[in-house]
C-alpha cells in the first residue's frame, strides 16, 4: 500500500510536469518543469528498488542535461516566449502525438506483462558493475558506447570550431 501510494504520487507529478513542459509558453519555466519530471522519474526508480539508477538519473539528467538545456536557453534570448515559426505545424503535430499516444496505450494495455517472482536485489551496484564490465557481461557494448560518444563529441567540436582565415 505504501509502495502504491508512492508510485501514484510520483506518477501524478511526472505526468503533470510533462504536461507543463509542452503547454507552458515561458521556455525557462518549461525547462524547470522538465527537471521536476526527471526527479519524479528518479522517485519511480526508487520504488522499483533501483537506487543506483535513481542516483544516476538525478546526476545525469538533472545535474548535467537540464543544466545544459538551461544554459542554451540563456544564450538565446529571442526564443524566451517560444518559437513563433512552429505555429503552422500545430495540427500535424497534434495528429502525430495523438496517434503515438494511442499506439503506446494500446501496446501497454494489450501486452501480457510477466511479473518476476524473484525479490529485487538489495545492493544493485555490485551486480550492475559485473554486468557492465565483467567478462560474462556487456563489456564490449559498454566500451563501444564510450567510443561512440567520444566520436560524437569530437564531431561536435569540429563542427562548432571557428574557421581560421
Amino acid at each position: 500500500m505504501g509502495l502504491a501510494a508512492a508510485f501514484w504520487v510520483m506518477a501524478v507529478f511526472a505526468v503533470a510536469a510533462a504536461l507543463l513542459v509542452v503547454s507552458l509558453r515561458n521556455i525557462f519555466r518549461t525547462a524547470l518543469a522538465l527537471i521536476v519530471c526527471f526527479i519524479a522519474v528518479a522517485g519511480l526508480y526508487i520504488t522499483l528498488s533501483a537506487d543506483f539508477l535513481a542516483a544516476a538519473q538525478i546526476l545525469v539528467y538533472v545535474g548535467a542535461i537540464s543544466v545544459l538545456i538551461i544554459l542554451a536557453i540563456m544564450m538565446t534570448r529571442e526564443v524566451r516566449q517560444g518559437n513563433p515559426a512552429n505555429r503552422p505545424l500545430k495540427l500535424p503535430v497534434l495528429a502525430v502525438a495523438v496517434v503515438l499516444l494511442g499506439l503506446l496505450v494500446y501496446v501497454v494495455v494489450a501486452s501480457p506483462w510477466q511479473v518476476s517472482g524473484t525479490p529485487p536485489l538489495a545492493p544493485t551496484t555490485g551486480p550492475l558493475s559485473r554486468l557492465l564490465f565483467g567478462s560474462q557481461g556487456y563489456v564490449l557494448a559498454t566500451e563501444i558506447c564510450a567510443v561512440l560518444i567520444l566520436a560524437a563529441i569530437l564531431g561536435a567540436i569540429v563542427l562548432a570550431k571557428e574557421k581560421e582565415e
Binding site: 524547470l32 542516483a55 544516476a56 538525478i58 546526476l59 538533472v62 545535474g63 537540464s66 543544466v67 538489495a122
Partner: peptide
Amino acid sequence: NIGILYVVAVSSLTTVGIF
C-alpha cells in the same frame, strides 16, 4: 549503499536554484 553517489547527485541540484 550508494552514499557517495547520492552526495554527488544531490549536490548538483543546487546549481538549478542558483540558475
